[in-house]
Design a protein around this nucleic acid. Structure first.
Lengths: 246, 246
DNA sequence: AAAATAGTGTCTGTCAGACAGTATTCT
DNA sequence: AGAATACTGTCTGACAGACACTATTTT
């Protein structure tokens, strides 16, 4: 905060204040692909980027939202119906030019949810909310504002953290099996992972609780697991394959 | 951004907008200790937290600052005279209660600078800017706003990244020697590091350029080095000591 | 019985940590 | 010469990656 009292830069009605918003990058795994939730901006009215797809988000409601994270949770709940996602702050983007209406800054969160828990934007205009495969959207779509940069940053953060954390577990509905979890790792990382190493790694990290019954989505049933602690991922002591990554 | 045109929540003169500021956590190593730069808030006037020490920062100047990062650089330059620090975004803190004046959000950056490059706040009121040992400030001082939480978060981020990156090199003036660099690692981590392992690690990471002349601040002179690329740190393939940390 | 997938056992190369040893300068 | 510090060499235990093997279920 400012050190001088009554600083000439102190904002008020007579000084320009940046627009402040919160956006959420919501990831899931659907149809063997990493996907992101986007909303379509209105084509009428005087809003910028008409008909463009954009990350869900919007201005802070200073009456309803107690904190930035509350605001992000609210927006996520509005669009997906999910109320207990994995949610972490990604960063903020702010500049004089990112919004044609003027200086704006957005606080960006990134969320991981199991696709089965989702009920896309009930009522109203459900058609303007949809999942997009990450690869496709980065290859083909033009997103509103600087949302392409933001999405890129979120993807990098996710991929990098998947190398040494249990994050992918938040993309699956419980209970899940180890082969299912391994598959999610492979989808996100875009490469195969050794089964044996994967299993010892997951089990020795102590973050999974064995759920009695097993699940038979393939030939031989497998043990079911759930997270011992849904509030935070586990950090593994080493990254997945030192040769491949950074 | 908002999907509906003319949303009732769209801020304007008639709707409350959060205050938006930028704060910077500036670290250096001085007198064998990790230190942070704080400024003292004014005791007169109607400003909150009078006489409290706080992180340097303040409101965005939408005329001067093109981006959030520009704003952070400007504040850092103002207080320290340093214009090419290592600077990275730490995160943002926003809530209805963190500032008694109303809903506010701050974008926080963290910077690493060599203490020798610093010329503390020239002119004006130099007495209200000072370095504080991290340990002391976290033990003894009461900081303004939620700056204690922010400082704690910055410290965690720094300590964690030091385990697997070349970040400490940005805390030293160039040229520096490997023993000096090792010492900085030890100061930040708060523990001793093996010499042999340290050297092979640094040299094999290819981020140091040998500068011809050597430096004799101890008995036997040592080779001098500088960073090949000052814009980003190097990420090591493994963390420092798997037994100790996470 | 065959196919398919879940789960385990074993080997091996790599490498960080530990520590001893050598080199070069100052007093 | 001795002290102090820069720098190098060697050993060893731990462990990730690779891959072969066993177990259990469906068809």
């Amino acid at each position: 905060m400012r050190t001088k009292p009554l600083s000439p830069k102190r904002p008020g009605p007579e000084f320009p204040v940046p627009y402040t918003s919160v956006d959420v990058v919501i990831f899931t795994v659907l149809e063997d692909a990493l996907q992101v939730l986007l909303v379509q901006r209105p084509g009428d009215g005087d809003e910028p980027f008409p008909d463009c797809w954009a990350l869900p988000g919007g201005f802070i409601d200073t009456v309803v939202d107690a904190t930035l994270e509350d605001c992000a949770r609210r927006k996520l709940k509005d669009k997906t119906g999910v109320s207990s996602p994995y949610l972490e702050q990604l960063g903020s983007w702010g500049s004089a030019t990112r919004d044609p209406r003027g200086w704006s800054a957005t606080h960006v969160y990134f969320a991981l949810i199991p696709s089965k828990d989702v009920v896309l934007a009930r009522g109203a205009n459900a058609a303007d909310v949809a999942w997009f495969s990450i690869d496709k959207v980065l290859r083909e779509s033009r997103l509103a504002f600087d949302h392409r940069d933001i999405l890129q940053a979120a993807l990098e953060r996710l991929r990098s953290k998947v190398e040494y954390t249990s994050l992918p577990a938040f993309l699956l509905p419980e209970p899940f099996t180890l082969p299912q979890l391994q598959h999610v790792y492979e989808v996100v990382l875009g490469r195969a992972v050794d089964k044996s190493g994967f299993r010892t790694r997951m089990l020795s990290a102590q973050f999974l609780e064995e759920v009695g019954y097993t699940d038979g989505e393939s030939n031989r049933p497998a043990k079911g697991f759930r997270l011992a602690n849904r509030s935070a991922p586990v950090v593994f002591p080493r990254t997945f394959s030192p040769r491949g990554g950074n």
